[in-house]
């Protein structure tokens, strides 16, 4: 029962990340703001991370490496915010 719920939620979270990424892609195309492109890519990295974790399962020892994608996603957002702030000062 518990593992079914975890799998179900894993799929739901993956889809939510994909949809969020698609929204940010649309905002990027509308405004041309690089921040939105970074958000889109970051959310898709989070989706990929979640998908891999769900597909491999917690018992697989490679699962831990998938979280590197999550770190990359957050670093991408962080660097985009820093760039947005620096671009304005120039």
């Amino acid at each position: 029962m518990t593992s079914t719920v975890v799998e179900f939620l894993g799929g739901a979270v993956t889809l939510a990340f994909l949809v969020a990424g698609a929204f940010f892609l649309r905002f990027w195309r509308k405004t041309g703001q690089a921040l939105f492109r970074s958000f889109a890519l970051a959310f898709w990295l989070l989706a990929l991370n979640q998908a891999i974790v769900s597909l491999l399962g917690p018992a697989d020892e490679r699962t831990g490496y998938a979280y590197v994608l999550r770190v990359l996603g957050f670093l991408l957002i962080l660097s985009a915010i820093i760039r947005a702030n620096l671009a304005r000062k120039r």
Partner: peptide, 18 residues
């Protein structure tokens, strides 16, 4: 008007406002 709302979202991440 829509684009200006999105711009407000981007500006929210800026530490110092224009």
């Amino acid at each position: 008007a829509d684009r200006q709302k999105l711009q407000a979202f981007v500006d929210a991440f800026k530490i110092r406002k224009d």
